[in-house]
Design a protein around this nucleic acid. Structure first.
Lengths: 109, 109
DNA sequence: TACTGGTACATCGTAACACCATGTACCAGG
DNA sequence: CCTGGTACATGGTGTTACGATGTACCAGTA
């Protein structure tokens, strides 16, 4: 697929919030989740800064958890503010998405 | 509406391509078009740089046209590369949009 | 004449974001 | 011992939207 970089601005943070809303997860695993979700070229260097941002904005709780294989994990979990941020994200996304859908239909019809 | 800045990254350029695909238009009018399309807070300081970018990428043809009221307009028109860029944009958008739709459905159901 | 307001374009600086490259470190298996 | 998978962190780069600001054209009007 083409370069999605610009279209993913703001979207990936929402996706991470979404993934975390299903229960705790950690950076390395989130990368895999995003890859499975279709964003195949999203890598660690993209996800870790997002997680740090969420932490600084106090949208997540963090816990260090020992791993069976490898270094300890930083397991993130949404708090109330995080859930609110996720809802706000979906609202914004829905807004933009619907406007573009209208634009696109204009021609397709 | 909330701040859509990040979500509009990459999107506005696509919208401008879309608007231009309906025939020639110029900066000041494009701002109005975007506002009518729901992007109410998009202003000139956002649109003019986009138009300059399209011009530099050779996706548009430019013509100076006298205005009945005010300074002359720079009327932009898509060329073949521009139409290809628009199609590529819709492909990328469709891709991202569909992935997020899948994510969102997961919970709503 | 002067002054206002709508039209129209241009640009500088800022902040935010995705991304790449790179580095560190833990651990198991061969 | 050493490779490869796991796991986190960061500095630098490029791209983008956006606010503020400036310039300029023109019509109406007081």
């Amino acid at each position: 697929m083409d370069d999605l970089t610009e279209l993913l601005k703001g979207v990936l943070e929402g996706c991470v919030l979404h993934i975390l809303s299903h229960g705790g997860s950690y950076g390395y695993e989130i990368v895999r989740s995003l890859n499975r979700a279709g964003f195949t070229s999203v890598a660690e260097g993209t996800v870790y800064p997002i997680l740090l941002r969420l932490e600084n904005k106090r949208l997540v709780e963090v816990a260090r958890v020992k791993s069976e294989s490898g270094p300890p994990r930083k397991v993130y979990r949404l708090n109330a503010d995080g859930r609110a941020a996720l809802e706000a994200f979906w609202r914004r996304w829905e807004f933009v998405s619907s406007r573009l859908a209208i634009m696109k239909e204009e021609d397709d019809v």
